[in-house]
Design a protein around this nucleic acid. Structure first.
Length: 706
RNA sequence: GCACCCUUAGCUCAGUUGGUAGAGCAACUCAUUUACACUGAGAAGGUCGCAGGUUCGAGUCCUGCAGGGUGCACCA
């Protein structure tokens, strides 16, 4: 028995060494596994592409959970003999990364992005991204993730840029990408457009003001934003509202707070006759619903009264004023003119930007969009339909299955996707202009062309992730072998943003699915059930945890009892429990290895263990890793250690059985606790493989699906 | 407003197709140079949110209600 077993298990000394040995062996790379003969030449492929962490800082426990679950499936499949690829990468996370760096520069140097210029800012961001990337990679390795680093990708590197340009062109040529003037969510603080899903609604109390435009105007209107009324072109009422029927179609002139306005009365069934006065002032340029109503009634969109800095652009007393100041001025004016009727408090959801906290100002802007409702030539289906179909047909299975309902609900509400952003970090829109000419996807060789100033929404490139990482658009072996991928494992919170967009992009580009199964994990919360956040200071850093208890313990704590789709609570106590378990296993090994392997294997105990192995295998195959982990844990501690080993003490004839159970338990537990199992494996006197990592799985395949 | 999830032991949660309720932690009693105190043995603790229904049988399926949470939409 090696001397190391005389001391308690030391995960810190062991884990880094073991990971280095694995990396040196090359066995994370499936090609190398084939070369070394541990995987058959014609073995079936199994692939997962790592959801790329943002290069905005460090990993949190949610990432650790993701790594643990994916590594379990990967290690399991590798031991089962699949040609197993787990491909790593990181995400440039455009807005998130730029805003972190911009904030830092503002704080350190008091400069904004325009002071630095595009080139200098990008240099700074890239330096930050590189630093952040290196930290992330070392964290990922600490968790024991058996990723093939030789294939590492970045959403903003050359191969991925080629993929982005190719897909953009394909979509443009198909008429699905268009440039248009639309109301966008403008973030005056971040000075960029943001997408609907980057908005956070905050409930606030606001004042609802009721007034008339002028003394001879026949209808009172109510609004929470009186300052926008200088941009009104119409008043909409419900077609059946008897109070206003006689006015529909009439037009009025007024001078509202120094600004001449022209108002037409229109009837639209969108108007709720019970809210306010039942009459809405329409400001097409500064409200999404007003814009749509204006469309229906052929009204002008062109009256713009607020600019990108949320300041008024009209002449007179409001000129250059912030919207909030302008509001007070308008109310004062209404009162002095005798037009003001009343004000009341109402609850209102204010749209704010997730990243900057700025209040969203809806503005009409020339932006690039992806049309989700236009039938695709040759396929006669819209993108929306393409996104629904594979999930409805079962080609893509979502775990837990009830999230399919959420998915459909979300897709049904899908609107055209605004893909341009007014920031500098990211994929620049691959469109070049020269006078009236435009070149899409390919940069013209001649002089005189200028590229679009905007960059693409970060999800545009991450939507291609399953195939851009495999080398597409080149027809690589990897792409042929590993796509569609087998599993996508990610948090349920990005099901609509990312998962849906990967399905969209892949269905459109390749006419196939990006993955067969989606496994959604929940949020990792603190012991009180609160979200982990910097401001609360309740973050658990996976690196600290690994240093204190070992990555194996952290992985078990994250996996056991954690059903997919459900949030979990995590505490140091829980992780400590699995550190104890690691030590228990260590001592089991010490006990078994201290005796000579001799005699026969007891059939009854072997049968019992084999039944467990089969059970655990079925649980993994059916994505119940939370149960598989608990079953092995329970067997090893409370059956093997507490009963079988106790029973064997002072008796002969158990050692062969104990060796059998130990050897195969290490295999069963390896995907969950890779380090300690590998470390003990290295000390076994006889073994069927140098590395446990590529040893043969101890139970037959029980793939019950289909 | 629409949708989804949750409600099981003091706490955190399991419970795969319906077959007399489980784990971890905490608390309680006992053991103590043991492979392991990062330990072991034992006992205690639940009318499975409420009310109906289907069934020979319901924590599990159906309906309604209540409480908690989440997502989406609207919000003039």
């Amino acid at each position: 028995m090696p001397e190391k077993f005389l001391k308690p298990y030391d995960p810190i000394a062991t884990e880094a060494r073991i990971y280095a040995e694995w990396e040196k062996s090359g066995l994370f790379n499936p090609d190398e596994c084939v070369k070394q003969g541990v995987t058959g030449v014609d073995a079936p492929p199994y692939s997962i592409v790592l959801p790329p962490p943002n290069v905005t800082g460090r990993l949190h426990m949610g990432h650790a959970l993701m790594l643990a679950v994916e590594d379990i499936f990967i290690r399991y499949k590798r031991m089962r003999g699949f040609r197993t690829l787990w491909l790593p990468g990181t995400d440039h996370a455009a807005i998130a990364t730029q805003s972190v760096v911009e904030k830092q520069i503002k704080k350190d140097e008091g400069k904004n992005r325009h002071d630095l210029g595009r080139e200098e800012l990008l240099k700074r961001i890239e330096a930050y991204a590189t630093e952040s990337h290196d930290i992330i990679v070392s964290q990922v390795k600490t968790m024991g993730a058996s990723l093939d680093w030789s294939r590492e990708a970045f959403t903003l590197d050359e191969t991925r840029t080629n993929a982005v340009r190719k897909v953009f062109k394909k979509m443009y040529d198909a008429g699905l990408i268009y440039r248009g003037l639309r109301i966008v969510n403008w973030d005056p603080k971040g000075q960029t457009t943001i997408s609907d899903d980057e908005i956070v609604y905050e409930e606030r109390t606001a004042k609802l003001y009721t007034f008339r435009y002028s003394k001879d105007f026949p209808i009172s209107v109510a609004t929470t934003r009186p300052e926008t009324k200088v941009g009104d072109v119409a008043v909409a009422v419900h077609p059946d509202d008897p109070r206003y029927k006689e006015f529909v179609g009439k037009e009025y002139e007024a001078v509202f707070c120094d600004v001449p306005i022209h108002i037409k009365i229109v009837a639209d069934k969108e108007v709720d006759p019970t809210f306010g006065t039942g009459a809405v002032g329409l400001t097409p340029a500064h409200s999404n619903t007003d814009w749509e109503m204006a469309d229906r009634h052929f009204l002008s969109h062109e009256v713009i009264v607020i600019n990108e800095y949320a300041k008024m652009t009209v002449p007179g007393r409001l000129e250059g004023k912030k919207t909030t100041e302008a509001r007070d001025i308008v109310v004062e004016w209404l009162k002095s003119e005798g037009l003001f009727e009343k004000e009341e408090d109402i609850k209102q959801n204010v749209a704010t930007a997730e990243r900057t906290g700025g209040i969203i100002e809806p503005l009409p802007k020339l932006q690039w969009f992806v049309d989700v409702n236009k039938p695709i030539h040759g396929r006669e289906k819209t993108l929306k339909e393409l996104v629904i179909e594979p999930v409805r047909s079962g080609a893509i299975k979502i775990i837990p299955d009830y999230f399919e309902k959420t998915y459909f609900h979300w897709v049904e509400n899908l609107r055209d996707w605004c893909i341009s952003r007014q920031i500098w970090y990211g994929h620049r829109v691959p469109v070049w202009y020269k006078g009236e000419d435009i070149s899409v996807g390919i940069e013209p060789k001649e002089d005189g062309w200028t590229q679009d100033e905007d960059t693409l929404d970060t999800w545009f490139s991450s939507g291609l992730w399953t195939f851009s990482t495999l080398g597409w658009p080149d027809e690589t072996d990897d792409f042929k072998n590993y796509h569609p991928t087998d599993l996508l494992e990610t948090g349920y919170d990005i099901l609509p943003f990312w998962v849906m967009r990967m399905i969209l992009m892949t269905e459109f580009t390749l006419n196939t699915i990006p993955f067969k199964t989606v496994y959604l994990h929940g949020l990792v919360r603190d012991a009180q059930g609160r979200k982990m956040s910097k401001s609360l200071g309740n973050n658990l850093d996976p690196l600290d945890i690994a240093a204190k208890f070992g990555a194996d313990a952290a992985r078990m704590a994250l996996v056991v009892g954690n059903t997919p789709g459900t949030d979990m609570r995590m505490s140091e106590d829980k992780i400590k429990g699995y550190k104890h378990f690691a030590n228990k296993l260590w001592n089991i090994a010490r006990f078994v290895l201290s005796q000579e392997r001799a005699g026969e294997i007891k059939e009854e105990l072997k049968a019992e263990f084999d039944a467990l192995a089969k059970d655990v295998t079925t649980d993994i195959e059916e994505y119940r890793v939370y149960m598989a982990a608990e079953k092995i844990y329970h067997y090893l501690w409370h059956r093997l250690a507490d009963e079988i080993i106790e029973e064997s003490k002072g008796k002969d004839g158990y050692s062969a059985t104990l060796y059998y159970i130990l050897e195969n338990s290490l295999k069963l537990l390896h995907p969950f606790m890779p380090f300690i199992t590998e470390e003990i494996w290295q000390s076994l006197p006889a073994k069927d493989s140098k590395f446990l990592m590529v040893a043969k799985w101890p139970a037959p395949a029980t793939d019950l699906r289909q």
